Simulated scan of single mutants.
Amino acid sequence: MRQNNRMLWLLGVLVVVGLIYVCILQVKIIQYSHVKASKSADYLIVLGARVKGKEPSKVLASRIDAAAKYLKKNTDTLAIASGGKGPGEDISEAKAIKRELVSQGINESRILLEDRSTDTYENIEFSKKFIPSNAELGIVVTNTFHLYRALSIAYYQGLNVEGLSANTPWSAVFKSYSREYLAITKFYLQRYIIGF
């Protein structure tokens, strides 16, 4: 009986600690998702997300819309469409981003394709090769739930960037945030414990 009480107490402590940890992550996500991007950045990186066949998912479509809006107002900003081709995708995420940006009136000469990356770390790492050598400020475009981790990775890789948040579709909120808590935890483990 005493052992059962001890196990229940330990389980309760773990649950409380877990909830506190998730709350801290949520505060970080909220802090980063409301920051406004500066005008006239030298480049912006649109991070890829799932493509269904050839069509962007709702999550990716919102990133594309946010990027297009910024690019229309800042005509000297270069766009880097970032994302490889994953399972169930007929074209790369980068190609889907470029196609949709062009359909919204962005000249394709302003859009560069990084179509090899498979995750956020690679999105940033591989996109660095397309950044002009004289660039001073960049923008990372992704959804509200993803911006904190994306910017943390970009800072870790030495980029001077700001965030441009795209709305997270309601249908994707639960799944996206749940996965993001795990992805942030993995990033913390890799950076602070493993040292990647």
Score class of each variant (00 low, 15 high):
Arg149Met: 00
Thr144Ile: 05
Ile30Leu: 06
Lys69Thr: 08
Asn167Ala: 14
Arg149Thr: 03
Val46Cys: 07
Lys54Cys: 01
Lys175Trp: 09
Asn123Pro: 04
Tyr121Val: 11
Trp9Met: 13
Met1Glu: 11
Ile131Glu: 10
Phe130Glu: 06
Glu122Tyr: 06
Arg149Lys: 14
Ala68Arg: 07
Lys28Asp: 10
Asn167Asp: 15
Leu11Glu: 07
Asp65Ile: 08
Ile131Trp: 05
Val140Tyr: 01
Ser82Ala: 07
Gly83Phe: 06
Asp115Lys: 11
Val140Gly: 01
Val161His: 08
Ser109Cys: 06
Lys85Met: 09
Arg6Leu: 14
Leu71Gly: 08
Asn4Ala: 12
Lys54Val: 07
Arg179Ala: 07
Leu151Val: 10
Tyr21Glu: 08
Thr120Trp: 05
Asn143Val: 00
Thr185Ala: 14
Ile24Thr: 08
Val161Thr: 13
Lys36Met: 07
Ala79Pro: 06
Gly195Asn: 13
Ile193Pro: 00
Lys128Met: 06
Ala81Leu: 04
Ala96Val: 00
Ala79Asp: 02
Ile131His: 03
Val59Glu: 02
Val46Pro: 00
Glu136Lys: 15
Gly83Pro: 08
Ala135Cys: 10
Ile111Phe: 04
Gly18Met: 07
Ser82Thr: 05
Asn167Arg: 15
Arg149Trp: 04
Leu189Cys: 09
Ile124Val: 02
Ile111Trp: 06
Lys175Met: 05
Asp119Leu: 07
Lys72Ile: 05
Ile194Lys: 15
Arg191Ser: 11
Ala66Ser: 12
Asn160Thr: 11
Lys52Ile: 11
Tyr32Ile: 04
Val173Gln: 14
Gly83Glu: 02
Leu10Ala: 07
Trp170Lys: 15
Pro87Asp: 09
Leu19Glu: 11
Ala67Asp: 05
Ile91Ala: 05
Ile153Pro: 14
Glu100Arg: 12
Lys39Glu: 12
Leu147Trp: 03
Leu164Thr: 06
Ala154Arg: 12
Thr118Asp: 00
Ser152Ile: 03
Asp90Tyr: 07
